[in-house]
């Protein structure tokens, strides 16, 4: 019997279109399901949309995707990535906790729950330092804080934002690194490829969304080992591990769980959409 899978989305990006085209090529029965288009009965386990045998969760909205994954798993559907993996990777604070617990090298990071303790954290870490929202992506609201005056400004702005998640301060050391980071695509323990993301001339951040340029990166033993350990630390799945080259070696600073792979595909020449579908097909065989 042919197995079927669905791609749960809320916005069709290049990645979703590419997954769909590749599935057609491979004659895999795939259904695109718009996460915004239907209500779900939470109290009747038999009442829901037909999601097929396996769900690839691709929502661009973190909370939307996370809660839908919880619902689908409660209805005994297999979802990639899992609720637990998505929960951890979508939250920088939880990611750091899991990396540290697994003894994976990661930048020194503090959490603080008031502006006063955020200033104390900055004094401990030393300037310059980085402040990041615990939820969010694409470099949004990530601030380079050069001194106490800059810190007070950033923290005052955060205090005025009507969002309780932005009152949780995540303060990280500014790692001395080349103007690039390394993105490693890993699926459970299979390291698929890696790329460098080099910051554009007018930004210190290395997000492709902010104009960073991509180029191939050779997967050496250190990169492979760190990517596999990072994947295991968050429960595995289809992941993009972000790492930095420091004097002390490679540090893992972030793991993404709804990966965008247009840049990585073009730089590495690896067909990441095909790798994702093959990963899911392997899961279906079990």
């Amino acid at each position: 019997m042919q197995r079927s899978l669905s791609i749960l989305y809320d916005r069709v990006r290049w990645e979703e279109k590419t997954l769909l085209e590749k599935a057609k090529e491979k004659r895999i029965n795939v259904k695109l399901i718009d996460a915004k288009s239907f209500p779900i009965n939470l109290t009747n386990v038999n009442s829901f949309e037909d999601f097929g045998d396996y769900v690839i969760q691709r929502c661009v909205g973190y909370f939307r995707g996370l809660h839908l994954t919880a619902i689908l798993e409660a209805k005994n559907l297999s979802v990639v990535n899992s609720f637990q993996t998505s929960l951890i990777c979508g939250n920088k604070l939880l990611t750091t906790l899991h990396l540290a617990k697994a003894n994976i090298p990661t930048p020194k990071t503090y959490a603080a729950f008031s502006t006063e303790s955020a200033l104390d954290a900055l004094s401990e870490i030393g300037y310059p330092a980085i402040s990041k929202p615990i939820i969010g992506s694409w470099g949004r609201l990530i601030s380079l804080i050069r001194d106490r005056n800059g810190a007070e400004t950033v923290l005052e702005h955060r205090e005025m934002m009507n969002n309780s998640l932005l009152k949780i301060y995540y303060i990280q050391e500014m790692v001395r690194r080349p103007p690039r980071d390394i993105r490693i695509i890993v699926m459970d323990e299979n390291v698929v490829t890696a790329i460098y993301r080099s910051s554009s001339s007018n930004s210190w951040r290395t997000n492709v969304a902010l104009g960073a340029k991509v180029s191939p990166c050779r997967v050496n033993d250190e990169i492979r080992d760190l990517a596999i350990r990072a994947s295991n630390a968050v429960g595995g799945g289809i992941l993009a591990v972000d790492a930095m080259e420091s004097k002390e070696g490679i540090l893992v600073h972030e793991i993404n769980s709804t990966i965008e792979f247009k840049g990585a595909s073009s730089a590495s020449k690896v067909d990441i959409a095909e790798e994702i579908l093959d990963y899911v097909l392997q899961k279906l065989k079990r």
Binding site: Y62, R64, I135, G136, W138, R140, L141, T258, E260
Partner: peptide, 11 residues
């Protein structure tokens, strides 16, 4: 009308 980018959007 398309949704506008929200604070939790990303990868």
């Amino acid at each position: 009308k398309a949704e506008v980018v929200a604070e939790d959007w990303g990868e």
